[in-house]
């Protein structure tokens, strides 16, 4: 098991490295003019040269990359501006380290995503199991029908409607508000609960039918028949035998879908007005604040890789065979 974890961590790190290289190439090899953007309206050529020198933009690209990567690990000194590790660069627009900005936004996004995963895993598995149990019955049809309906509407439309009706017009659910879990765990929980329930419920619709199919498939497996022939009760079979096998493919799907769900989190932040990484990225797009966008992408990659790692480890716990292949 230890070797398996180590191997997965190594794999995750290599993916991360590739993501950093790709990000650097996309953002800093392209035809961009960060110095111009930073210089502002009253700009003189001298000043541009000065800024480029400060930011190291006059150096060869390979050297810039080394500096960038070194910054991530050990921190940098960007023309007198101290940037502590992990240094994600310097925001031209706000004139402060990108890391500071990300540091504020990161917990917001992670809170939304983790809470969402908890909600949609629970709901997806629960309703999937219920639908499988009552296959062909009205309850099954209702669950499948609702999940189909929900998945057929774009997420941002649903989010807008929810925001407008549930939060603004009727005030059924208090507006979302983020407080750090470290400051006050209770308000952190209550402030985000509405978001989690909404985000989680909508995403769970994707999984309900999947879990249902998986559970039905498991019901027909030979080992379920074996369990029955041992004299086990139906409840024991459902929980200890069927569920464990039915969940395995769901975990795989969970790992694959993390990136897409991060996208959902961006909409969520934007629409519900939470200052997470999604909003940070969108604001930076408006101001062409390249280092910030790049920083968000790198940190996003970190989130995806870590969640995938988590899913892999969970999978390893569920299915003993994966350690070998």
């Amino acid at each position: 098991m230890l070797v398996y974890i180590l191997r997965r961590v190594l794999l995750g790190l290599s993916v991360l490295l590739a993501a950093i290289v790709a990000t650097f190439c996309i953002f800093f090899l392209g035809p961009s003019d960060p110095a111009g953007a930073l210089c502002g309206r009253q700009c003189t050529p001298d000043r541009i040269v000065q800024i480029e020198k400060d930011l190291g933009l006059n150096k060869p690209k390979t050297e810039q990359f080394v500096t960038y990567t070194k910054g991530l690990v050990a921190g940098n000194d960007l023309g007198g501006k101290k940037c502590d590790a992990p240094c994600l660069g310097w925001s031209y627009v706000q004139n402060r380290p990108v890391t500071d900005m990300v540091k504020q936004a990161f917990p917001v996004t992670v809170s939304i995503v983790i809470g969402g995963i908890v909600v949609y895993s629970t709901l997806g598995i629960l309703f999937g199991m219920i639908a499988a149990r009552f296959r062909g019955k009205p309850l099954d049809r209702v669950i499948v029908g609702v999940s189909q309906f929900v998945t057929s509407i774009p997420y941002f439309v649903l989010a807008q409607l929810f925001f407008l009706y549930a939060m603004v017009y009727y005030g059924l659910i208090p507006r979302a508000k983020y407080t750090s879990i470290l400051d006050n765990p209770f308000t952190w929980f209550t402030g985000l609960l509405g978001i989690w329930l909404f985000y989680g419920t909508v995403l769970s619709a994707n999984y309900v039918r999947y879990v249902r199919a998986s559970m039905i498939d498991v019901q027909n497996q030979d080992y379920i028949r074996t369990a029955r022939s041992k004299g086990l009760g139906e409840r024991k079979i459902a929980i200890s035998h069927a569920l464990r096998a039915g969940i395995a493919p769901f975990l795989t799907l969970l790992g694959l879908a993390v990136a897409a769900e991060l996208g959902g989190a961006i909409f969520t932040e934007r629409i519900f007005g939470l200052q997470g990484m999604g909003n940070l990225a969108l604001t930076s797009f408006d101001t062409s604040d390249l280092p910030v966008i790049a920083g968000v992408v790198v940190v996003g990659a970190v989130i995806i890789v870590s969640l995938n790692l988590l899913v892999d480890l969970l999978y390893g716990l569920v299915d003993p065979r994966v350690k070998l292949s």
Partner: peptide, 16 residues
Amino acid sequence: AAMIFQDPQSSFHPFK
């Protein structure tokens, strides 16, 4: 009464 099945590969739970 106990039963032994044809395919021992699929008749055991793979995760247990």
